[in-house]
Design a protein around this nucleic acid. Structure first.
Lengths: 239, 239
DNA sequence: GCAAATTCTTTGTCTGACATTGTTAAATTT
DNA sequence: AAATTTAACAATGTCAGACAAAGAATTTGC
């Protein structure tokens, strides 16, 4: 077994990760750094991790663009989202043209419907109560005529929670975030989808009753209405 | 009007974007670079854009992590996804635990099914031909016993193209990328989903025939088989 | 004409220097 | 003594140069 001492030694020597991201994650975990904490300065990272500064900077800059850390000249680098060796970072690029608002809803549609189906099947009684409460809150705010969008987010969020799969929440939230980024910038915020709100009460009821098909149908209807509104809006603003 | 010559001059001087991403996007647009084309080498970018090499590299590395470009030592940097000044970049973080492989397939499922439905409705004759050809290629490679995964990617890619919505391709590809990142690292690559390949021929036929429901059913079957295999795999490797 | 070896090109990494800006501590003033 | 201003410090941002490593292209040999 010990026929090749050099190689054996090389393998044993391999206790440290060979690339910067791994080494950084390891340092963060070993140090027990939490969200909000500051990372060591770059020059200390150079010393402790054994990589060149530019190499380390490339990783930190990438993490910054992914929202893992925030970096400020003079201040330092802070952790702003959880990261561990089990965290995988994925980036999407969305082209924002006339049709992209519609395209986003087209992708959101199946995700939202599937999320509702799964939630209807799997939600615990506690989760169903929360969904119902959020729906009540949404309707109340809507009827008073206040800004219902935060309540709408909370309602859908409750559904996504109930799926037991955090990816649904993440994907849909990112789509919505991109949607609003595009939407608000060019021409103000006209409260798109207002007319879908009254449908949210029966949707909540269907979920609570465990009527998967009805819940899915209502969700489809809601998103289709948003699509129609989006389309009208796009046409009105682009030709 | 010419009360402040210095400032006027400064403003006129402002013909070039101040940060690297803008400058790069501008160059790509001006040059008319398409997906698949090669970017100029780093040193030429240094010369033409007027930034230091490390600064440019930080942007290119970030773009690589976002799937905008692919970079290879010796080769060069290629554009692998559309980018323009209207492109929005969004990042996801996926926590990879025992269940995350399954969770990813759970999210992929509705996306893939919807993509197939839309493709079946909207594909042009030319696109249907391509899908058919890819299916034939996939079956041929599969029967010979070679690595069918690249062909499988090309087949699904052809479907995503036919939706006319690039977001489907991006989302699903990123999920797959994350899946393989997790999958290959810990325990080698056991060709998951092998038994689904024979179903791809009838799937292609259904798409070409315009039978939306059948195509959707077959897709669901395929992904459910992958889910089952994933589950078995997870259990075998985690207890 | 083809295969192998060589050269060239391009990205990857490291080092060192300086600029810019936020932070902190000292000095000055009130 | 307290508050404000100022100066020193620390951290990231940028640039330049050198070499390593690996893919691509060319040349050489047969």
């Amino acid at each position: 077994m010990s026929a090749d001492p050099e190689k054996v030694h090389a393998d044993i020597d391999e206790d440290g990760p060979r690339d910067v991201p791994r080494a950084l994650i390891r340092l963060i975990e070993d140090e027990g750094l939490q969200v909000g904490d500051r990372l060591p300065p770059e020059l200390e990272l150079v010393r402790r991790l054994g990589f060149g500064r530019s190499t380390i900077r490339e990783t930190l800059k990438t993490w910054e663009s992914m929202g893992v850390v925030s970096r400020n000249k003079g201040a330092g680098t802070r952790l702003i989202s959880e990261i561990s060796r089990n965290t995988l970072r994925v980036a999407l690029t969305i082209k924002h043209e006339a049709e992209s608002l519609l395209r986003m809803q087209q992708v959101r549609r199946p995700l939202e419907i599937e999320a509702v189906r799964i939630a209807t099947r799997l939600a615990t009684p506690e989760q169903r109560r929360i969904i119902s409460a959020r729906a009540a809150e949404l309707m109340a705010i809507y009827e008073v005529g206040e800004d219902w969008r935060p309540a709408d987010s909370r309602f859908h969020n409750a559904i996504h929670e109930a799926t037991g799969n955090p990816l649904f929440k993440q994907f849909i939230e990112q789509i919505q975030k991109a949607f609003h980024d595009i939407y608000e910038t060019p021409f103000g915020t006209p409260h798109l989808g207002q007319e879908t709100i009254p449908l949210h009460r029966p949707l909540a009821d269907a979920i609570i009753a465990g009527d998967e098909d009805k819940a899915a149908d209502l969700t489809a209807t809601i998103i289709d209405m948003v699509c129609t509104a989006t389309q009208k809006f796009s046409e009105a603003h682009n030709g």
